[in-house]
Design a protein around this nucleic acid. Structure first.
Lengths: 212, 212
DNA sequence: CCCCTGACCACATCATCATGTGGTTGAACC
DNA sequence: GGTTCAACCACATGATGATGTGGTCAGGGG
């Protein structure tokens, strides 16, 4: 296994040092940069002689710039680097914001050091590791949302919604389903009442977010 | 650790039996049902004395009904059961269709039996385990899509898009951004040209799918 | 048999959207 | 100092959308 060039951005001295001590002794891991904040990290990499980096362990709760903000900055300088979030917090929005920003792994700080090290190798091999509780939240994100009582759409109504989501006009939906445009209007009126919305925009959002 | 009542749905005899042999000897695992297809599984649970089930190991490539279709049927009978997909295929659409249908874990068949067993316990504790390559694909699903050359929106344009996605009318966007409604129109015209769309619906879809 | 419901259709009206043309201003760049 | 570009604004017109009222028809349930 070839060498992995690591950076660690973590403000908590205890965690930072235990990570450093544990990881540094592994022959395949080379810690090339350690910072206590994103600002310190960005300062360190800004000159021409910035180090080669394969993977970054990144805390979310940092003084100054947050880790999530940091992801964007990191990816500007190192578009190919793998970013592993390491954090005590498991709020859904932090998880999803991190992933949307470009993190490829999300690990709880309660995780044993050996598992974190394993995750580093896994990520470097092109895989990803998520802590079990995190992975569950991600899986749940895809699951069908529970419909509120009485918010069920009929089959026909769902076809209409699909047409709307596909960007079709009423006329086009009418042609596609081979019904009158007035019938389309009629369906949409009822759909709006059922979903308690009053514009195509909201229907599309609800649909795409799985709330149908 | 309390007992876990398991079901296995898998058509390949070799895999089915190796799973059975390996898992059955564990004192906390109780295999209460084994089926070669969804049809056989559904037949077995349809009478009144259907077994208690905590977790199902489910193959995707099954003769007759696919495992993904099977998820819907399983969740009708057992809404609370944890479903673990076990499959050789790692296509993105199979992964996401499974998760959207309600699976809470997705494991490659190449995974060692001991790891599969660990995953079962993890899932039963309320977590989830994804094979590394699967987890990576899921992480990538959230990542910012690469914009095609020349499809970048300006900051202002993104604010307009956000207004549209939020279901605001031009007038409301104008008020919110404190500009004229004609300026809003102007921005939207340019946004449409840049994104090569011609309706709010398509803008919303693109935005929600991360293509901005 | 009556009632209810989902799907179907028509007509009407006002609001909003899509699109065009034409213009100003200030910052950025060569 | 001329060019380019984002952001700003105005006016105009036809298309589309949102909502209401009113109606037919077929199927399921009391």
């Amino acid at each position: 296994m070839e060498n992995i060039n690591l950076a660690i951005v973590e403000d908590d001295a205890v965690i930072r040092e235990s990570l450093e001590n544990f990881l540094a002794v592994h022959p395949s891991l080379k810690i090339v940069l350690i910072a206590k904040s994103m600002e310190e990290f960005l300062e360190a990499i800004k000159d021409a002689s910035r180090p080669t980096l394969d993977l970054i362990l990144l805390d979310i709760e940092l003084p100054g710039m947050s880790g999530i903000q940091g992801i964007y900055h990191i990816r500007q300088k190192y578009p190919e680097v793998d970013i592993v979030m390491l954090t005590t917090f498991e709020e859904e929005d932090k998880i999803f914001n991190s992933l949307c920003a470009g993190a490829c792994s999300y690990i709880s700080k309660r995780t044993p050091l050996a598992t974190i090290r394993e995750a580093i190798f896994t990520v470097h091999r092109g895989g990803s590791y998520m802590s079990p509780s995190i992975a569950r939240k991600i899986a749940q994100h895809f699951m069908p949302k529970e419909r509120k009582e009485g918010e069920q759409l009929s089959v026909r109504q769902k076809e209409i919604v699909q047409g709307i989501v596909d960007g079709l006009s009423y006329k086009m939906i009418a042609d596609k389903l081979d019904i009158s445009i007035d019938t389309v209007r009629d369906h949409i009126k009822r759909i709006y009442r059922t979903l308690e919305v009053n514009s195509k925009a909201e229907v599309i959002r609800k649909s795409l977010e799985g709330e149908i």
